[in-house]
C-alpha cells in the first residue's frame, strides 16, 4: 500500500559523519557487493567491462568544495543513500504498491516483482536515492540492509547495514531515531545533525553530522625578500671574506 503510515514503531536510519568521512568509497563498494548477491535480484551493471560502463548503485559518494567567506576552501566528502523519509514522496506516487514504507521500522522498500519500472518514484525523490536497474528494469534503492539487520544467523556485530559495517573511519552509524537514548539520537543531539533539503517537506530520517570547525592558522604576512644569511667566518677565511667585501 502506497499510503504512508501515520507513524512507525521504530525509525531506523543512518547518521553520516561528514567530519570523519575520508571519501574512500568503501561503503559504496560494500553496499554494491552485498546487494548484488543478497537481494531479490542482482544490482546490475550495463557494459561492466566496456568503455561506457554504467550501473545501479544504492549509495554514491559525492565530493564538495565549501568556501567560507573569510577562509580557504575545504573539501567535504558526502555519501548519499536513501534517507528513509517519514513523508516519502516516492512511496505515495507509486501506482502499483511496490513502493512502501514499513510501519514497524520505517524502512522504505520496493517489492521488485510488483514494480512496473515507470520511474515516477525516482522523479519524486529530491535526493537521487532511487536508480533503475539497467538489466532487471525495476527500481532499486537502499534497503537499510533489511536482509542483514534481522538475520539471526549472522554474528551480532554483522547485523548492521553493510555500509556501516565496512566504514574504516567510523563515519556511519545505524540505529533507531525514535529512541532518544540510542547512539544515533545522541549523536544528532550532541553534534547538531543536519536534515537535507528540509524545504522539500520529505522529513528525512537520516541525519548528517557537520564538519567540526577547522583550527585556522593565523594569516601569514608578506614574505620579505631576504638573502640567505651565512654565519660569519673567522681566521683566514674571515680575512678573505672582509677583503673580498672591500673589493665590492
Amino acid at each position: 500500500m502506497t499510503s504512508l503510515p501515520a507513524s512507525t514503531d521504530k525509525r531506523l536510519g543512518l547518521v553520516i559523519d561528514l567530519d570523519t568521512c575520508v571519501g574512500c568509497h568503501a561503503c559504496a563498494v560494500n553496499c554494491k557487493e552485498w546487494n548484488t548477491g543478497a537481494g531479490a535480484s542482482p544490482l546490475s551493471d550495463a557494459d561492466a567491462y566496456g568503455a561506457d560502463v554504467s550501473g545501479a548503485w544504492l549509495n554514491r559518494i559525492h565530493t564538495f568544495e565549501v568556501t567560507p567567506a573569510d577562509a580557504p576552501a575545504q573539501i567535504v566528502h558526502f555519501p548519499k543513500s536513501c534517507l528513509h523519509c517519514d513523508d516519502a514522496p516516492c512511496v505515495t506516487v507509486c501506482p502499483t504498491g511496490a513502493s512502501h514504507k514499513r510501519s514497524e521500522d520505517g524502512i522504505v522498500l520496493v517489492t521488485e516483482d510488483m514494480c512496473i519500472g515507470c520511474g515516477l518514484c525516482a522523479w519524486a525523490c529530491p535526493y537521487g536515492a532511487r536508480e533503475m536497474d539497467p538489466v532487471e528494469n525495476v527500481m532499486k534503492k537502499c534497503t537499510l540492509c533489511v536482509d542483514r539487520i534481522y538475520d539471526e544467523v549472522l554474528p551480532e556485530e554483522d547485523r548492521i547495514p553493510a555500509c556501516v559495517r565496512t566504514c574504516p573511519s567510523n563515519a556511519r552509524h545505524f540505529g533507531d531515531f525514535n529512541d532518544p537514548g540510542s547512539h544515533v539520537s545522541r549523536l544528532v543531539a550532541d553534534r547538531g545533525g543536519i536534515e537535507l533539503m528540509p524545504e522539500m517537506g520529505t522529513k528525512p530520517v537520516n541525519r548528517y553530522l557537520p564538519p567540526r570547525p577547522k583550527a585556522r592558522a593565523p594569516a601569514a604576512g608578506p614574505v620579505a625578500a631576504t638573502r640567505p644569511q651565512t654565519a660569519k667566518a673567522d681566521g683566514f677565511l674571515g680575512w678573505l671574506d672582509a677583503a673580498l667585501d672591500k673589493l665590492g
Partner: peptide, 22 residues
C-alpha cells in the same frame, strides 16, 4: 542539498563516478 550552507558556498568538486548514471 548538502546542509553545508552554514560553512560557506558549496560547489561540486567530484561526481561519485566518472561515467553517467541513471
Amino acid at each position: 542539498a548538502t546542509g553545508l550552507g552554514f560553512l560557506g558556498r558549496v560547489r561540486l568538486l567530484e561526481r561519485p563516478h566518472t561515467g553517467e548514471n541513471y
